[in-house]
């Protein structure tokens, strides 16, 4: 039984390492901030969650604290990427777009107008 848990844990650690690497690679390869955020957030969240959970399966007596770390990463990482995307858009970072699809511009303009008037 312990051996099966160990194999699953090792597999999770390996998968996590691969996804952490892919997240960092996406950070370098993508063309603009928003696409970079997409690649970075998703891949690094699952990568970190899976690595940490893998260690939790190798050491069953650590599992409670490990679960807290996993849940914290799952909640906090999308939040910080959302805050960064919003702040950058308001600071004037224009998203890269082939077909110029941008429904957010109008809403931001309206909000700024309401603030200043």
């Amino acid at each position: 039984m312990m051996e099966i848990l160990e194999y699953i844990g090792m597999a999770l650690i390996l998968i996590g390492g691969i996804f952490l690497f892919l997240g960092a690679l996406g950070l370098v390869r993508m063309p603009d901030l928003y696409t970079r955020l997409q690649a970075g957030t998703k891949a690094s969240t699952l990568g970190a969650m899976s690595t940490v959970l893998g260690v939790g399966l190798l050491h069953p007596d650590w599992i409670l604290k490990i679960l807290i770390i996993v849940i914290f990463i799952g909640v906090a990482n999308p939040l910080s990427s959302h805050a960064l995307a919003r702040a950058s858009y308001r600071k004037g970072v224009i998203p890269f777009s082939k077909n110029n699809i941008d429904k957010y511009k109008k809403a931001v303009k309206k909000q700024i107008k309401n603030l200043t008037s």
């Binding site: 996804f19 892919l22 997240g23 690679l25 996406g26 390869r29 993508m30 063309p31 603009d32 928003y34 696409t35 997409q38 690649a39 998703k42 891949a43 998203p95 890269f96 777009s97 082939k98 077909n99 110029n100 699809i101 941008d102 429904k103 957010y104 809403a107």
Partner: peptide, 18 residues
Amino acid sequence: VARRVISPDLPINPGIVK
């Protein structure tokens, strides 16, 4: 994400929808 990052010609067509 892995598919998009690894493929050499970056198959993306980004935009903001509501």
